[in-house]
Amino acid sequence: MTATARRRGPSMADVARQAGVSGQTVSRVANGRANVDAETRERVLDAMRTLGYRPNSAARALRSGRFHSIGVIMFTLSSFGNMRTLDAIAAAAADAGYSITLIPVPHPTRGEVSVAVDRLAEEAVDGVIIIVEAHLLDESDIELPPELPVVVVDSTAGDRYTVVDTDQAHGARLATEHLLGLGHRTVHHLAGPDRSYSATHRREAWEATLRAHGAEVPQVLVGDWSSESGHAHGLALASDPEVTAIFAANDQMALGVLRALHQSGRRVPDDVSVVGFDDMEEARSYWPPLTTVRQFFGEVGRRSVEALLHEVETGERRASALVPTELVVRESSGPRHAASTGAGSAAAS
């Protein structure tokens, strides 16, 4: 018998006819939704067994009541932090016997997020982790399926969902206080994009820390997380002899700043101290090695999966959690020197 002559397997429509329900009801049962009464659910499951309707995900659900799959909606795959968090989520999910279904969101608008949610609603997933890195989930017109457990990373969700994130504000405070403690009169800040939730928290904490110490608050420069934007803004900062301390909102922008300072003849840290945020593996190999705020992306990913599976298994949401940060001091930061207000010192070659 040829492939074209083979009898097709039973479809969802066949199951619906056998059970006397709508195709939508069959889909809800197949996807583990809770909004189907027990009698109807059993009738649909009986029809699936009778007809031999056994896609892999449905077979798992028939045995365990779950699909052992986690959906992940992610804003960008190019971000260092997002990729480290995704790696940790995949590892933690695998350890728990779950797979992940990834839906990238190239443009983090409300519509794009809603489309991604709709796509996952059609998949056989037990819950969703959302890593959007933007101020989106406090918008009332983003509808998430009420029966689907959701954990949010690097965004805000009010009190509707569990949020797991790095303590962005604490990290920015550590960086700013470190530079002030070295005698710098103020700290200039190269922020991440305005739409970024984490960038906003770092910027607000930087400003609040300066004000708390009675220091001047310089104008913020806004980058796009790339070393290129760090370099462009770094040239502007290097041209100002009053700039002696710079806090960049991530390590990649800090790398661009270091390059700009070197090209402009400003020595680091003798003339200008630089602090980043993330503690990328490469940060210790920057020249000079970069003082930075360490984020524990693995812990964020692990806690996200734990919180989601707790809700899947018990129906109860865990409290939101902030993962602490720590300051890693290396050679790119040092005491302010009286001579550092001049820009004429030669760069080390």
Rank of each mutant, 00 (worst) to 15 (best):
A5Q: 13
R33I: 07
S11P: 07
S273V: 02
V268L: 11
A5C: 10
H184F: 08
A321Q: 15
N35M: 12
G20Q: 03
I130H: 00
Q252Y: 09
R110M: 13
R211Y: 06
L102H: 03
L148F: 04
A343L: 08
T76S: 15
R330G: 04
I70L: 11
V21Q: 01
V113K: 01
R317P: 07
L77T: 09
N82M: 13
D138S: 14
E316V: 13
G71N: 01
R33H: 12
I89N: 00
T244C: 11
S57F: 12
G97D: 00
F277P: 02
L182E: 02
A169W: 07
R160Q: 14
S227I: 07
D271H: 03
A61E: 01
M74F: 14
E299Y: 10
T200V: 10
A92I: 11
A238W: 04
Q168S: 06
T101S: 10
S264C: 12
L182M: 10
R7Q: 15
L190G: 00
A191G: 01
E331C: 06
I130N: 01
S345W: 13
H262K: 15
L190N: 00
D270E: 15
V152C: 03
D37T: 05
R211Q: 08
L308V: 00
L221D: 00
S78K: 15
R203W: 09
R195M: 14
N56W: 14
P241V: 01
H213S: 08
S155G: 09
T166M: 11
D118R: 14
S79F: 04
N35K: 14
R41Q: 10
H233R: 02
A19M: 05
R160A: 11
G234Y: 02
A208N: 05
A212H: 07
R266M: 04
A19S: 03
G276K: 04
R185E: 14
R330V: 07
F80R: 10
T162Q: 01
Q252K: 12
A134V: 08
A94F: 13
D87K: 14
T2F: 14
A96M: 05
N35E: 10
D224M: 09
V72Q: 01
V153L: 13
Y197Q: 06
Y197A: 02
G71D: 01
A134S: 11
N31Y: 06
A96S: 05
L327I: 13
S340R: 05
D118T: 08
D159C: 09
R302S: 10
E204D: 13
R17Y: 00
A58M: 12
A93H: 05
T85P: 08
V15L: 04
S320W: 02
F75W: 14
V164W: 05
A248T: 04
T341E: 09
S79L: 09
A307Y: 05
L258W: 02
G23W: 12
T85N: 03
S320K: 00
L235I: 09
V187C: 03
M253P: 04
S114F: 06
Q24C: 13
S22Y: 08
H201D: 10
E112M: 12
R8P: 12
N31E: 03
V26M: 07
G214P: 05
T200N: 03
H178S: 01
P106N: 01
E123G: 04
G230E: 00
